[in-house]
Amino acid sequence: MGGDDVAGYLRADRPRAFRFPEDHGPHPGFRNEWWYVVGNVDSEAGRRFGFQITFFRVALTPDVPESLSAWATDHVWMAHLGVTDAGSGEHHAFERFARGAAGLSGADLDPFRVWLEDWRLIALEGNDFPWRLEAVEGNTGVDMVFEQRKPPVLQGDGGLSQKGAGEGNASYYYSMTRLDARGSLRIGDEVHEVSGSAWLDREWSTSALAEDQAGWDWFALQLDDDREVMYYRMRREDGSTDPYSKGLIVAPDGGSQLIRSEDVNLEVLRTWRSDTGRNYPVEWRLRLAPMDREFEIRAVHDAQEMNMTVRYWEGAVDVLEDGKPVGRGYVELAGY
């Protein structure tokens, strides 16, 4: 997300016009891009699960390689799959890599699809919703269909999300904050028919983090009153909150309101130390001035670390207000 290797790439340095469903597809010319879906679902027997799938495209060079080989590529792809069983407390995390060549991985339109080997996110017809996710690793996997409940919302300044100081330290960023999710989820010998709600994030950029930024705390909350809250806290190296932190409140009708860093008070109530030696927050108090509301956010299970090539915490959470459940969500903690 940082670094000086930006020569020859496009930059997120000004607002742009978004077009749907075309922007669901790839954006060549930018160094980084991802398709990210998280969700909270319940089985017919009342058992709760969380899931995450992310497909990352990373450019190796801004130039298309001059080679006749089918293996030549200017991109590498990485995908992460996470599944949390809230009842047992088990968290499963998997990772794959592939070059963007020989049909191993990629992204297309007409019809829409993103894939890494046999993990894939595809439109059932054309480019728009409904989409289907199929991702299985060993005896753990997700087979889910997503239906659109609300239109896309543009993050930041009309979709230009400035993450740090300096021109181009930004991403083009939109979200689909309420998707109906239905399908099956497998853990071990058990297959669970599940339904619930999911969230899609789409970003592409060439650089985003400034030199004094260490990482971020990202919250995606789906409230029972059909509102959604997204807030990301960009953390500086000294632990303070960067003023570029921001978010969005999405109304039941799909309208949205920007959240600025000065509108938010985020207090860590409890932390958890992983086997990798990292201390992650797992319980917070979130005060939002624009809503005049205060939420308590709790991990459904502490040990939801994605212990892979890049280590981070990504997990399902509950949202409470005055001690009563008012929603569910997902939290990502990077740079700890």
Rank of each mutant, 00 (worst) to 15 (best):
M1W: 10
V6W: 08
P15W: 02
A17P: 01
H24D: 06
H24Y: 15
H27V: 04
F30P: 02
F30L: 01
R31I: 03
E33C: 00
W34Q: 09
W35L: 01
V41E: 06
S43F: 07
A45W: 02
G46N: 07
G46D: 09
R48F: 04
T54A: 01
R57C: 05
V58L: 14
A59G: 13
L60I: 11
P62T: 06
P62I: 03
P62L: 11
P65C: 07
S67P: 04
L68Y: 03
A70S: 12
W71A: 13
T73L: 07
W77C: 04
V83S: 04
A86G: 01
A86S: 12
A86M: 08
H91Q: 08
H92Q: 12
R96K: 08
F97R: 14
G100C: 08
L104K: 14
S105A: 15
D108P: 01
D108E: 13
D110Y: 10
P111H: 06
R120L: 01
L121A: 10
L121F: 15
L124S: 00
D128N: 14
D128L: 12
L133E: 01
E134I: 01
V136K: 02
T140K: 03
T140F: 05
V142H: 03
F146T: 12
K150C: 03
P152Y: 09
P152E: 05
D157Q: 14
D157F: 08
G164P: 00
G164E: 00
E167V: 09
G168A: 11
G168K: 13
G168E: 12
N169I: 02
A170Q: 02
T177Q: 13
A181R: 04
L185F: 14
R186K: 15
I187T: 04
G188Y: 07
H192M: 07
S195F: 06
S197H: 14
A198P: 05
W199V: 10
L200A: 10
L200G: 05
D201P: 01
E203P: 06
E203A: 00
S205R: 06
D212K: 05
Q213S: 04
A214D: 13
G215Y: 02
W218D: 07
A220H: 08
L221P: 08
D226H: 14
R233I: 07
R233P: 11
R235Y: 06
E237Y: 00
E237H: 08
D238L: 06
T241Q: 13
P243K: 00
Y244C: 07
S245W: 05
I249L: 15
D253V: 01
Q257M: 12
Q257F: 03
L258R: 15
S261E: 14
D263R: 09
V264T: 05
V268P: 02
R270K: 13
W272M: 05
T276M: 09
T276D: 10
N279C: 04
R285F: 02
R287K: 13
A289V: 08
P290M: 11
E296S: 08
I297P: 06
R298H: 12
D302K: 06
Q304V: 07
E305A: 03
N307R: 13
M308I: 04
T309F: 10
T309A: 13
V310K: 03
R311W: 00
Y312H: 13
W313N: 10
A316Y: 00
D318N: 14
D318L: 09
V319H: 15
V319G: 13
D322P: 05
K324R: 15
P325T: 09
E332Y: 06
G335E: 14
Y336W: 12
Y336C: 05
